[in-house]
Computed example of a mutant assay.
Amino acid sequence: MSLIGEERKNFILNQLNLEGKVKTNELVDKLGVSSESIRRYLEELEAENKLKRVYGGAVKINLSREEPSHLKREVLHADEKRRIGRAAATLVEDNDVIFIDDGSTTLQIIEYLLNKKQITVLTNSVAALYLLIDYKNKELFSGDIFFIGGKVSSEQSRVVGALAEKMVENFYADKAFISIDGMMLDKGITSFDEERGQLAQKLMAHAKSSIVVTDSSKFGLVQFYKIADLKHIDMIVSDVPAPKEWEEELAHKDVAWITAN
């Protein structure tokens, strides 16, 4: 494949991240090539498992409408999540109060908090709680730990529901670190589960800064429950730079973007 061909395929993938779908006739106009060429590019990208062809174009692959279990989420895109967690932890300052939700990406932040002084962590994640307790008992973590209680989801290793939301109302944090299941410019950030999404909304409302941590597999996807529009987010930390087509709108909405190294 020539360089120009690879550039065209990258353009198609960027459009998928932006819109969640592409249409063959629109790609013909935008790229100035034949419909046969577009179909060939889509076939190649489908063979690479980067999209799914449908009548008249293609859509971004959404392998499941159901949330994977916590154990499965931990191993998906593990390297990217570690890098994101490390980058997100640099935003935490000594004496901060932070919310960490139940995401497998936000879980990666904890390891990089050990050199911080007097951090207060509030979390609804059972996995995060165990990890913090272990570090605390080993005298590696010097801060305070608050567990957000309520209805326990054993499969997802988290607490959600009305009791958890009510507890969050009693606290205010400097930063809320939120994980997501989908993100698009016009549809905002979304979650598989409405109870999890509602708790994320509460965490964001009770924090000075709302920080989304996500790998690029979530771009261009829309899931069941809308958490928030992008204008309500202060910062996004991801493993890749923002899609070029997003940059102007992100700047307009005053959303900062951090790329993890």
Rank of each mutant, 00 (worst) to 15 (best):
S2G: 15
L3M: 14
G5K: 06
G5D: 11
R8Q: 02
R8W: 00
N10M: 13
N10G: 08
I12N: 07
L16F: 04
L16N: 03
L18I: 12
G20Y: 03
K21T: 11
K21A: 14
K23P: 03
N25H: 11
E26R: 12
L27F: 01
L27M: 00
V28H: 01
D29C: 05
D29S: 13
L31C: 05
G32V: 07
E36I: 15
E36A: 15
I38R: 03
R39W: 06
R40T: 05
Y41C: 13
L42N: 09
L42C: 10
L42V: 08
E44K: 12
E44W: 07
E46T: 00
E46S: 04
A47F: 08
L51A: 08
Y55D: 09
G56A: 10
G57L: 05
I61V: 02
N62W: 06
N62H: 11
R65F: 12
E66V: 15
P68W: 12
S69I: 01
L71S: 14
L71N: 13
L71T: 12
R73L: 13
E74Y: 09
E74I: 13
K81M: 09
R83I: 04
R83A: 04
I84V: 11
A88E: 12
A88S: 14
A89F: 02
V92D: 05
N95S: 05
I98D: 00
I100Y: 04
S104A: 13
T106Y: 07
I109N: 07
E111A: 02
Y112K: 06
N115E: 14
Q118T: 08
T120H: 06
S125W: 01
A127T: 10
A128W: 00
Y130I: 12
Y130Q: 10
L132A: 01
L132H: 00
I133W: 08
Y135F: 15
N137H: 14
L140R: 15
L140F: 13
F141S: 05
F141E: 04
G143V: 05
D144N: 15
F146A: 03
F147C: 03
I148N: 01
I148P: 00
E155H: 10
A164D: 10
A164N: 09
E165W: 04
E165S: 14
V168G: 07
E169I: 07
E169N: 15
A173K: 03
D174P: 10
K175P: 01
F177M: 05
I178V: 08
G182W: 00
M183E: 08
M183K: 07
I189H: 05
T190W: 00
T190G: 06
S191F: 06
F192G: 02
F192A: 02
E195Y: 06
R196T: 13
G197A: 09
Q201T: 02
Q201Y: 01
Q201C: 04
L203N: 02
L203S: 03
A205G: 12
H206D: 06
A207R: 06
A207N: 08
K208S: 11
S209R: 12
S217Y: 04
S217K: 04
S217L: 06
F224A: 11
L230P: 00
K231R: 03
K231W: 00
D234W: 01
M235A: 08
I236D: 02
V237P: 09
S238N: 09
S238M: 10
S238A: 15
V240R: 10
P243H: 09
P243M: 10
K244M: 06
W246K: 05
L250C: 11
L250S: 11
L250F: 11
A251P: 02
T259G: 04
A260Y: 11
